[in-house]
Design a protein around this nucleic acid. Structure first.
Lengths: 211, 211
DNA sequence: GACTTTCCTTGACAATTGTCAAGGATTCGA
DNA sequence: TCGAATCCTTGACAATTGTCAAGGAAAGTC
């Protein structure tokens, strides 16, 4: 076996792997869409397949079982969601700017991606009952915490103040605000996003004490 | 028909109604227990019946359908849960006392009633997808908000300070802390309850500014 | 262009689900 | 004690579910 043949075979193999992974991602996206619409409890494999261009049998060609598919969904959610506020932090030059842009972005996320976020909370809740998701959920939660802390700590730095909360608590607090706003928004309360923006903005000041 | 007969009939009728309601409550409790253990997505009527002393058919004698039963469960959860911190507020004579007792009580609730609380979050999440629960969920959420505000506003009063948050935001924040602690505790993080206690305690000071 | 590998569909399976009807068992009033 | 109302069980039903095997369609290889 020559080196060239070896290389060719590897290239073919890699291409196949890539194609395989690509289709998995495609199906995981169809699953995410279905889950965001129906919720965990009401999502079946056949329903997922109907939101894709394939038939239901193909899911067992690309995933060993339903749990495997759902875990890939969780991971895919992470990729889409977790770097959301990085540019804002990078772009903001002053503390008031950062405060305004961040709280605005939260409100905008609520308005635009409510279904995807209710899915996240649904899956995180499932991990309270079922251990299979738990590790991935905790990892994503950690990433979200870091994302929030990235914003909050930068805000304190720009404002020249120190913070009175831990990263973990800061995340829990802002997540609580977001989750409440999500419920209110889906319940038809039109002011939900504006309220979230105001609450987040005021909270950033509350959490920051003068040095 | 005499007045006496009328009264007797009414008494009988009332007794039957009471008995009917009592059994409904009994079955709703079995359902709550099952839901707290398995979660919404995995709870079936047969499983609920197995956690009671009856067979599965009886559920359709006392409830029109599954949704009807679940709504009664939500309502019953409220009755058990929503007056939890009232005595603490009444008993506390000073601000530090109230702060200590309340944060201790939160931690204790987390330790003792974690399954019931994960059920609450599960049902609240269902209301993000399905409209049938939503009204009841929002009502209970409102009651929980009032309960929290009862504590927080009393704390500010005792401490002689003013608060920098609305009742709605205060609830969202503390609920966020509790929910995070619940996840951590069910994931086996032993410090979850202690952390919750410390976070709640510190947050009460953060939210209260000097007059 | 034949052959092999990969990909996808179809149809079936056993299990589980919510629902309900038929009919015992129990309770209650007279 | 008898008859009727209430309560509860049993067993069945149609629908839905996750799973998988058989085989056709498509793509890739020589």
């Amino acid at each position: 076996m020559t080196d060239v043949a070896e290389t060719n075979r590897e290239r073919v193999s890699r291409r196949q792997v890539d194609k395989f992974a690509e289709r998995r991602a495609q199906l995981a996206d169809a699953a995410l869409q279905t889950l965001a619409e129906l919720g965990y409890a009401r999502t079946s494999l056949r329903e997922i397949a109907q939101n894709s261009q394939f038939s239901h049998g193909v899911l067992h060609y690309y995933f060993t079982d339903k749990e495997d598919l759902l875990i890939h969904c969780v991971r895919r959610y992470e990729a889409a969601c977790v770097t959301r506020y990085d540019e804002i932090v990078a772009a903001a030059g002053t503390a008031p700017e950062l405060k305004r842009d961040f709280s605005e972005a939260m409100a905008q996320t609520l308005r635009a991606d409510a279904p995807m976020h209710r899915l996240w909370y649904d899956l995180r809740n499932q991990s309270l009952f079922e251990e299979s998701f738990r590790a991935d959920v905790l990892e994503i939660d950690q990433r979200r915490e870091e994302m929030i802390w990235h914003v909050i700590s930068r805000y304190a730095e720009l404002a020249g103040v120190t913070l009175s909360v831990t990263p973990t608590a800061a995340y829990a607090i802002l997540d609580g605000l977001f989750q409440q706003a999500l419920l209110h928004q889906l319940a038809g309360r039109d002011s939900a996003a504006d309220d979230l923006q105001a609450n987040a903005s005021r909270l950033m000041d509350t959490l920051a004490a003068v040095t």
